[in-house]
Design a protein around this nucleic acid. Structure first.
Length: 212
DNA sequence: CGACCGATCGTCT
DNA sequence: GACGATCGGTCGA
């Protein structure tokens, strides 16, 4: 009840606006994306999950980023688009990893969504992932998130302000002590930058990647 | 538990 | 031609 009233009076309710994505602090954005709802709507099939794990990639100065040193290639060009653009790339030839481009045009910041908690369209997600029943493996890890939500590389460069892939604030709030920052996963190649606490997780959430 | 391995292919050198 | 911002499985201690 209280939650519903809060939602009704929260003027940020709804799809996150351009102003959310275009801010300069990608760490803050990655942290604030925890608790928001990632929605896909392809041919009127809606699936959605609450984001519980993200990683920030801090552009030109971040050795872990594909856009380190402002490296521009066909693949990374989309990272230089304005905030609210999707960056989806193929990893290990198998997994389609979904990122949110942030900051203004020309600054290649991005946030990788590493895990969500399934909310809407669970049957559809199970079908997409060839799974029988809902458990923590459905949307744990970035490859699984994309598979369950139906996101693939052809969605790269799509706008999160449109109606196929977007992020919603439903008023859900996490307490400060529910958010933990850790080093990022799988970026050992980045030297010192592999140690930066740029990964954000919801404490104790079973969909967060890693060992249980 | 931890270490290791195979899958699989676009991207960059 | 080498290599991943991964995953799920196996194997051995």
């Amino acid at each position: 009840m209280q939650r519903a009233e809060h939602q009704a009076t929260n003027n940020h309710w709804g799809k996150l606006p351009l102003s959310f994505y275009e801010r300069k602090n990608v760490l803050l954005i990655a942290k604030e994306l925890l608790g928001k709802i990632l929605v896909t709507n392809f041919d009127s099939i809606v699936t959605a999950g609450r984001i519980v794990e993200t990683e920030a990639y801090n552009g030109a100065v971040d050795k872990a980023s594909h856009a380190y040193n402002n490296r521009r290639t066909n693949r990374t060009e989309v990272m230089f688009a304005h905030g609210s653009t999707a960056y989806v790339y193929l990893c290990y030839g198998i997994h389609h990893l979904f990122n949110i481009v942030t900051n203004v045009k020309g600054v290649p910041h991005a946030v990788l969504v590493r895990a969500v908690e399934p909310l809407i369209g669970i049957d559809e997600m199970l079908a997409r992932t060839n799974k029988e029943k809902l458990d923590y493996t459905l949307t744990k890890g970035p490859g699984n998130v994309s598979k369950a939500l139906g996101i693939a590389t052809h969605h790269t460069n799509s706008s999160l302000l449109e109606n196929q892939i977007y992020i919603v604030d439903d008023g859900f709030k996490l307490k400060k002590n529910e958010i933990i920052a850790t080093p990022r996963i799988g970026v050992d190649y980045a030297g010192n930058d592999a140690l930066l606490p740029y990964r954000f997780v919801v404490a104790g959430n079973k969909y967060v990647s890693g060992k249980r």
